[in-house]
Write a protein that binds this DNA or RNA. Structure first.
Lengths: 344, 344
DNA sequence: TGATCGCGTGTGAGCGCTCTCATGGCTTCG
DNA sequence: CGAAGCCATGAGAGCGCTCACACGCGATCA
């Protein structure tokens, strides 16, 4: 008789079975499983052995039913699906989230939401205790999700900030500061005819990066008329279109600040199409320091934001909030950094 | 008295509450919730109204406890975390999976696994009925996960195929065919001194793309000595290193087939560093048609595989298998397509 | 030495749901 | 007109777990 691995029965072993094998009660097994408060060494050993022998794993459904915890948190991405996962930004956030989660017992559920129906379904899902907490990403201005979720008493952390100014736990990059760094660099290298491809005005990132741009331009003593603005939606195509409009209406511009790297890539294309040299004729600065920035032609000067850390920080803040649901909303601002390559 | 939205009580309404309000039994409510087999129109209407009024949503934990279904499937990615989400391949698979899932009630759980401990934990998680099915991605040769999961009777679909030849439901791109297309193009455009940066030999994608490369070279009548092979791990850095070795040992090569776009990007760098012009001196073909291929300098000629569809197809196959656990393992092969840009 | 305490342990209720089975009203057929 | 059948419905058990609470034992104190 060689020792056999636990039989692969179709029926998973229950607490009851472990208790019987260990010669103790269900309650004692439960205590051991959940961190052994006040269990005698003998009982603890017996239970541990029985668990190992049976290959016992707690039934999560039964546990959730009574504890009302799920050991699951959800990352809700409110955006078109083709935008979401193609954008390296999301991949990085996800990586940070996963990394922070890997040291916990929590499972991450991804929810990609678009349209009112899906949104409401997600809200229901969250509201009825399917998850212990919510991470919210990519919100547009009038989104009711943050207030609905937190109003339902479910711990919530969002990326960015609410344009309404409502207090919500959040993590954000220093978008204003980052945009200022970009503009200061442009000005310092002699550019005077600035333009920007801003992000959507209904998103805090869009608003903040534009604000930083405007502030820095003003600080540099540039006339408002020398700071043209066109908006895009963070996709490359929108950046290209915006830059084309910029060039058509203001042929004298010598620098473009794009509110994302993807849009900056579009700007590069538009510039190339218009026969302008980068950076000789027009300097371009992006935002994100996403992977494509490196491979752009020319490699993109950009504002790096610690995206991965942003994801991790969101998790930490959520864990804190789950542990202590009271207390005021906190917001963490992550620093940005200018990465100078060849485009400016 | 204006109609009020359902009160945001901390306590979610139960089946019991709905039954009481509708004036029927729990069982009847349950029937309505689960697709109303044999419920009178009157009862159905009353229940529907009560559900709406209360904002009732079934408690998933309670339901799972008795049905032993979870309405959750898990996508397990067995890879280093920093590789996983940075790779556009994964983002695309994820997008396809999410898309296919969006028309179902299923939730997707992401599990990123590395090391034996995490792997075993994931195996336990899966084995004890936490999920209804498993999607497996990025497997190396000696991985026990596929056989463990399917051995435990949990429906499983993997991307790629098992090098052991064990029958498992799977979806794969036509890697052999794709590689052949690439080589045929190289040969057709006059290249004779071929080399390849292959993928890991312990992964089916690596093996298959190399096989396709070798086959096509043989078919073209090229001597085996003219088909140099170095391997990488699908990262850009590894591609660069492999290409450097290739150049050092075989300075006469005039074409490189890289088993992934990321590696092709590395090849491009190595070539540039060595002062070779692309495609004039050396032609380069990648594999994947990932986003960076477009922005490469020069834009990359590559073999496109329908990655998103691969994700969707995995879901479909898993759903089929969940519905009918019996029957032989099936494997779906997705076509590839050569996309000609400037690098070859 | 008897009352008191505290610790380790077991008992039992019940979380919210599904599912089997019994029941009673109605239709249908001989 | 009675027996048989069918359909909508309800009663009740139980999924596997946690969490009071009760209990009994040895140690401690007056």
């Amino acid at each position: 008789m060689t020792p056999e691995p636990p039989a692969r029965t179709r029926q998973a072993p229950t607490l009851e079975a472990v208790a019987e094998l260990a010669g103790v009660s269900r309650a004692t097994v439960s205590r051991v499983v959940n961190g052994s408060l006040r269990v005698s060494p003998a009982a603890h050993a017996a239970v541990t052995r029985a668990i190992a022998e049976l290959g016992y794993v707690p039934n999560q459904a039964a546990r959730s039913l009574v504890t009302r915890r799920t050991d699951t948190i959800v990352l809700i991405v409110h955006e078109r699906p083709d935008t979401v996962f193609a954008d390296p930004f999301f991949a990085s956030v996800l990586r940070g989230v996963n990394q922070a989660l890997s040291v916990t017992q929590l499972q991450l559920v991804l929810l990609q939401v678009q349209g009112d129906r899906q949104r409401d379904r997600a809200l229901r899902y969250v509201g009825n205790g399917h998850v212990d907490g919510v991470l919210l990403i990519s919100l547009h201005g009038d989104d009711i999700m943050p207030m609905s979720v937190s109003g339902a008493g479910v711990p919530l952390v969002m990326a960015g900030r609410l344009l309404t100014g409502d207090p919500v736990d959040s993590v954000d990059a220093d978008n204003v500061g980052g945009a200022r760094q970009a503009v200061r660099h442009l000005v310092a290298t002699g550019r005077r005819e600035l333009a920007t491809v801003a992000g959507p005005v209904d998103m805090s990132v869009g608003v903040d990066r534009l604000a930083g741009y405007a502030q820095a331009a003003r600080d540099a003593g540039l006339p408002a008329s020398a700071t043209r603005v066109e908006t895009g939606d963070f996709t490359e195509a929108s950046g290209q279109a915006a830059a084309a409009r910029l060039l058509a209406e203001h042929p004298t511009i010598d620098a473009v600040f794009a509110a994302s790297d993807l849009m900056a890539l579009g700007v590069l294309r538009a510039l190339r199409a218009a026969g302008r040299r980068v950076p000789d004729d027009v300097a371009v600065v992006g935002f994100d320091d996403a992977a494509p920035a490196v491979y752009a032609d020319p490699p993109l000067t950009t504002v790096r934001q610690p995206v991965e850390r942003l994801g991790a920080e969101m998790v930490h803040q959520l864990l804190r909030r789950i542990a202590d649901p009271t207390g005021d909303a906190a917001s963490v601002i992550l620093p940005t950094e200018l990465v100078i390559r060849s485009s400016a």
